[in-house]
Simulated assay, not measured.
Amino acid sequence: MSKQQWRGWGAGEQAEQHYLVEPRALAGGGDIRHVSEFLRASGWRDRSTSGGPLAMQSLDRQVRIVYDPYVLPGGWTIHGAANGLTQEWSAHLGWQTPVEIVAGLTDALTRPRSAHAPNVWAPVQEQNWHTRFEGRHYTATSPDETAWMHYRQSPEGEAMWWTGAKDRHGHGWTARFTPSTPMHLVQAFAAELASPEPVMRPRGRVPHSDRIRTRSVSVLPSQLSAWQQARITAARAATWARSSARSARPRTTARPHTPTSSSARTRR
């Protein structure tokens, strides 16, 4: 690239108005590419059809993620197949679930599971959510009472997770996880749900709600692109590192012995 081209790169850009929105749970769905591009950079396959819903599949074909806003109730469906370690499981998230919160779960699907036992309640307790026991049930509510997580257990011992966010007029979303959903995924979701960090939305994409607080910011298109690319680059780097680590592992099984011609003649 010539110096003249470099000096002109990005010239004439005009800042665009965006808003930092909090609480993030009421910020609206956002751009689904925040989820899909990270998965694609992590080696997931895009199984979407032309004109159809977004569909992503893990490299081992064990997990499938679909986003379809055109059916009722619409939104995200994440399905994990049964294997030797886990039972079949699924999560269903409403279409207004902020993509940053969805990514808490979907990003975790691309990473190795921690050796530490998961604690779903730790992220919400760290953010001073109100928690209470109700018999076999457990509930956590955000300090502003806009978001919640419920744990319900049936008399038979079957557990269900139900979570979501709503304003005073009932606008918002809900999500639920089947009892067999791996707990480290629910914990990752809870961490993003409880995060106090605002999320960014472009002008015209901020929901109307008296529970939302916004701050206007001017952002260059190249800045947005750079932030998005940084997330994709991080996914590619992590995927490459895991692949390199696997290929560098020493062989743990002995090679099959192939007798030489002399030893073969000896046994004749």
Rank of each mutant, 00 (worst) to 15 (best):
H92A: 14
G94C: 00
T97L: 06
V99L: 01
V99Q: 07
E100H: 14
E100W: 08
E100F: 07
I101D: 09
A103W: 08
A103G: 10
A103C: 10
G104I: 05
G104Y: 02
L105K: 02
T106K: 07
D107M: 07
L109Y: 13
T110V: 05
P112S: 11
P112I: 12
R113T: 15
S114L: 14
A117H: 06
A117K: 07
W121N: 02
W121F: 13
P123E: 02
V124M: 04
Q125E: 09
E126P: 00
N128P: 08
N128M: 08
W129I: 02
W129M: 00
W129R: 04
H130N: 07
H130Y: 06
T131F: 12
T131K: 12
T131A: 14
T131N: 12
R132D: 09
R132N: 13
R132I: 09
F133W: 15
E134N: 13
E134S: 15
G135C: 15
R136P: 13
Y138T: 03
Y138C: 07
T139F: 03
T141E: 06
P143E: 08
P143H: 12
D144T: 11
W148A: 04
W148V: 13
Y151V: 09
Y151R: 07
R152P: 02
R152W: 00
R152C: 01
Q153I: 01
Q153P: 03
Q153N: 06
S154E: 10
P155C: 02
E156T: 11
E156A: 15
G157Y: 05
E158G: 10
E158T: 10
A159N: 09
A159Y: 05
A159R: 04
M160P: 04
W161P: 00
T163P: 00
G164L: 12
G164E: 11
K166M: 11
K166D: 12
D167T: 01
G170M: 12
H171Y: 12
G172V: 05
W173F: 15
W173R: 08
T174K: 13
R176F: 13
F177R: 00
P179D: 07
P179R: 05
S180H: 14
M183G: 07
H184N: 08
H184K: 05
V186F: 02
Q187F: 03
Q187S: 08
A188T: 01
F189W: 13
A190E: 10
E192A: 14
E192C: 12
A194I: 13
S195V: 13
P196F: 14
P196N: 13
V199G: 02
M200S: 03
R201K: 10
P202R: 02
P202Q: 06
R203Q: 15
R203I: 11
G204A: 11
G204P: 08
R205M: 14
R205P: 05
R205I: 09
P207I: 08
P207C: 07
S209M: 04
D210C: 05
R211P: 02
R213F: 13
V219E: 14
V219W: 07
